[in-house]
């Protein structure tokens, strides 16, 4: 599914080398978690994988289903199935949530040679999924994320994820800012998306989210590379002992 081979990446015009020789393989159908201390390069990894301008790959490769992503624009990577649930979802005044989502969905469908989804089908699908996530219909009419609480923004990310049905999901600190109830709703949403053809990478500080979304593998990211790997129990050990042993 997603293969990261000996990746080196920097930001800030090459002034900061953040990812050093990072290799990781997430097969289809598996959920992996990357944990690590502040500054280990976790958010950088998510931006490098999705092609954010300003993040430069100097060596190595990233393959999604055998195809290299590195020469593709962010929108091309997204259309090929890479989805990033943002740590800090962006507020976009003046763009109603539904308009944004319909534009995104149809852009993705066009890029994949599919017909655009008509308004009735779109409305039906979005209303059903919004209800699952306890998102009120009036929220969908408001400008995207404007005035939403932290929890509402994260739920909106999961909602978009469920609407766009990506092949590969990257979740960057999805649990931050969530209370216990919101965490459960978000986790249920993600668990519904666990399928044999889909890969999921969860980036997180804390083990808490992994109680709800149990990963197949857990990796420690330290100083820009994978320092250790283990199973779901390994996350509990990390939570108890800290990351010092891997620095």
């Amino acid at each position: 599914m997603l293969k990261i081979n000996n990746l080196f990446a920097n930001v800030d015009n090459g002034n900061k080398q953040i990812i050093h020789d990072l290799s990781l393989h997430i097969p289809a159908g598996e959920v992996h978690a990357v944990m690590g201390p502040n500054g280990a390069g976790k958010s950088t990894l998510s931006y490098v994988l999705t092609g954010k301008p300003g993040y430069e790959v100097t060596a190595g490769d990233v393959l999604l289903s055998g195809e290299s992503l590195l020469d593709l624009s962010p929108e091309e990577r997204a259309s090929k199935g890479m989805f990033l649930s943002f740590q800090y979802p962006i507020e976009i005044p003046g763009v109603p949530t539904m308009t944004f989502l319909k534009t995104a969905l149809n852009a993705q469908r066009r890029a994949n040679g599919l017909d655009e989804m008509g308004a009735p089908e779109f409305l039906k699908k979005s209303r059903a999924l919004a209800a699952d996530l306890k998102i009120k219909p009036e929220m969908l009419k408001r400008p995207l994320n404007v005035g939403f609480s932290g929890g509402e923004k994260k739920r909106m990310e999961i909602f978009q994820m469920m609407m766009l049905e990506p092949d590969f999901i990257l979740m960057d600190e999805t649990d931050s800012g969530l209370d216990v109830d919101a965490l459960r709703i978000v986790a249920e949403g993600v668990n519904k998306l666990r399928e044999p053809k889909r890969g999921i990478l969860i980036i997180t500080h804390y083990q808490r989210l992994l109680d709800y979304i149990v990963p197949d593998k857990v990796h420690v990211l330290s100083d820009g590379r994978i320092a250790a790997s283990g199973d779901a129990e390994f996350a509990k050990k990390l939570e108890a002992e800290g990351y010092d042993a891997y620095a």
């Binding site: 003046g94 995104a104 852009a107």
Partner: peptide, 19 residues
């Protein structure tokens, strides 16, 4: 953010300009 949701750059720029 818009591009990460598959919206091409020119369309994303138009959307934000209209807004």
């Amino acid at each position: 953010y818009l591009r990460q949701r598959s919206i091409p750059l020119s369309e994303a720029e138009a959307m934000l300009t209209e807004a």
